[in-house]
């Protein structure tokens, strides 16, 4: 009978040690692939509010937009979001549609083309969806306006928030 040498033992141990290591490596690989595939990268859309201005800024009446661009966002009877540019101005119906957003974008780009210093004020109805309001705000940012504000109604009157 052949007696196994110490050299043979080392070869066998090395072979046996490789298999669990490969197990672990594959396990880690699968874990990280699964963990990364399940996550959608989130981006950020920044706003810059004026701190504490809610109680200090004088009421700005939407009826007399002197040099401002007012964007009125509201829901119509068919539950579509309508954006009106200034009082009595052009209405863009259903901003969830890309074509309507393109129209609004071109109008705001034309306004910003004159000067980007015109303050833009978003007056958003409570019922307007977050997705639509973000779409409109995103278009305003794309037009590179210097100042984009949110109108709020905290004391029964509309006030500029930024």
């Amino acid at each position: 009978m052949k007696t196994p040498t110490s050299h043979d033992h080392r070869d066998i141990d090395a072979d046996q040690a490789m298999t669990p290591m490969i197990d672990v490596v594959f396990l880690l690989l699968i874990f990280f692939v699964c963990a990364s595939a399940g996550q959608i990268a989130e981006a950020l859309l920044p706003t810059e509010l004026s701190a504490g201005s809610l109680e200090t800024v004088d009421a700005v009446q939407p009826e007399t937009p002197l040099g401002d661009v007012w964007l009125y966002l509201r829901r119509d009877s068919q539950n579509r979001t309508v954006v009106q540019v200034n009082e009595g101005g052009v209405e863009h119906v259903d901003v969830s549609r890309a074509a309507v957003r393109a129209e609004l974008r071109s109008q705001l780009l034309a306004l910003a083309g004159a000067t980007t210093e015109i303050p833009v004020i978003l007056d958003i109805d409570d019922d307007v969806s977050v997705g639509d309001f973000i779409n409109v705000y995103d278009i305003c940012r794309a037009a590179k306006f210097d100042s984009i504000n949110f109108a709020t109604d905290v004391t029964g009157k509309v006030e500029a928030n930024e």
């Binding site: 959608i40 990268a41 989130e42 981006a43 950020l44 859309l45 920044p46 706003t47 810059e48 509010l49 004026s50 701190a51 504490g52 201005s53 809610l54 109680e55 966002l73 958003i124 109805d125 409570d126 019922d127 307007v128 969806s129 977050v130 997705g131 309001f133 973000i134 995103d138 949110f150 709020t152 905290v154 928030n161």
Partner: peptide
């Protein structure tokens, strides 16, 4: 994205009142 603006507005008002100027919305690019 399906929520109404009325659910988000109180956070913005509370931030402005607290003196927080940087309010950011998480979005998908």
């Amino acid at each position: 994205r399906t929520l109404a603006y009325r659910t988000v507005e109180p956070i913005m008002i509370a931030s402005a009142r607290a003196g927080v100027t940087a309010v950011k919305f998480a979005v998908i690019e």
